[in-house]
Design a protein around this nucleic acid. Structure first.
Length: 367
DNA sequence: ACTGGTTGAAAATCACGACC
DNA sequence: GGTCGTGATTTTCAACCAGT
């Protein structure tokens, strides 16, 4: 990747400047096609490296000038006058993002879902930062046009098909969410680097009579959780009823489980036909100005159900769940700490599935 | 009959945003 | 960080046309 050249170049500059003699510069890559056999890691297969010696040396001439520029910027009384845009988060997030964003409008043009740098530059050229100021003729995608309309008129968008799609399900309706962790160095036989390993599920089941039942699973031992995960999951899903998820992440995990566990292949594949993606339904059929351009559960939930916020949760996003789980199964974590993590994980995952129940319910009430 | 340019459809690539 | 679907953008390529 582009950014690694600078990274490697600067490391070379620092080490060389510290007096080390450097024969060559190499970048090591993880081979994500490598499958661990469960016994010994084959380092040759796991890693590959590319020789970037020339690129690192070529980069050296840019560094002194760059450093001078950086020093000057740091010594200045005022922060550099750079308009915040996409570059602030690419390739990595900038720690001044919050600070620089303060001056931007509540409905900033960057919130137009899917907008690229080109259109943003055009708007900046015209001095337009607020979605309400976008001129009529300006070319926008269907979804961006929808966002603009909703913001300008301060109203939500409800497509005709929303009710129909939300009701195109069979009872009992399962609302399902998985948590996974992904390790760079594979830990279990038959897995690859960064392969997502599911360790927890939550299922809110809406029965025909309106009763809501909650079932959940969390692997508590330090072992490959997939077998137990699969068995408990198949048991709770049974053979009837739609399975609602948010995005098709769960589908992909189930497909991977079916691939890696031939003994459960059939029943796992049978669940795929029952999946319904609530994210897709909302993206295609509904918008609320408080989404601020994002259809993630974290944006959609507070807009539709303000009282169900994420603030009170110890675990607030998926990545954190995986990290906390690793801490929970770590033998060096004290028992009471493990207990707390367990509670937080169950609370988080259950919160997401209940959120889906409530969102669907609230959207149906619009009709 | 050949060349060069244009057009438009199809395919490939890229960017984005969602999940973990 | 990985992965995937979606939609936009770019590239490719064949068909077409005008001019020689």
């Amino acid at each position: 990747k582009e950014e690694y050249y600078a990274d490697v170049g600067i490391q070379y500059y620092v080490l060389k400047g510290a007096g080390l003699h450097i024969d060559g510069v190499f970048l090591m890559h993880l081979n994500n096609q490598y499958v661990y056999d469960g016994k010994t890691l084959d380092l040759e297969g796991l890693f590959s490296s590319s020789d970037l010696t020339e690129a690192a040396i070529a980069y050296q001439e840019e560094i002194p000038e760059m450093l001078a520029g950086l020093k000057e910027m740091l010594a200045a009384a005022d922060p550099p006058g750079i308009t915040p845009s996409k570059h602030c988060n690419r390739p990595y997030g900038c720690e001044f993002w919050e600070y620089c964003m303060k001056g931007m409008p509540d409905h900033w043009v960057i919130q137009l879902s899917g907008i690229g740098q080109k259109k943003l530059d055009e708007l900046e050229e015209m001095g337009i930062y607020d979605i309400v100021e976008i001129p009529d003729g300006f070319s926008l995608s269907a979804i961006q046009e929808r966002i603009r309309n909703c913001v300008v008129n301060d109203e939500s968008y409800i497509a005709r098909g929303l009710k129909e799609e939300l009701e195109d399900v069979e009872s009992p309706i399962h609302f399902l969410d998985f948590e996974t962790f992904a390790l760079a160095i594979p830990r279990y036989a038959g897995t690859r680097p960064y392969q997502g390993i599911p360790f927890q599920w939550s299922d809110h089941i809406l029965h025909k009579n309106g009763k809501i039942e909650h079932r959940e699973y969390l692997c508590e031992e330090d072992k490959d959780p997939r077998e137990e995960f699969t068995l408990t999951l198949l048991n709770v899903l049974g053979s009837r009823g739609s399975i609602v998820t948010y995005t098709d992440y769960e589908r992909r995990i189930i497909e991977a489980l079916a691939r890696d566990h031939p003994e459960h292949h059939k029943p796992l594949l049978a669940t795929l036909d029952r999946l319904v993606d609530l994210y897709k339904i909302i993206r295609n059929n509904y918008y609320h100005p408080e989404f601020h351009g994002s259809f993630s559960l974290k944006s959609v939930l507070p807009a539709i159900i303000p009282e169900m916020s994420y603030d009170s949760l110890a675990v607030q996003e998926g990545q954190e769940a995986g990290i906390e789980y690793m801490r929970m199964i770590d033998p060096s974590t004290p028992a009471e700490e493990k207990e707390k993590i367990k509670k937080d994980l169950l609370k988080y995952c259950g919160h997401d599935t209940l959120a889906m129940v409530r969102i669907r319910e609230a959207l149906l009430k619009l009709f």
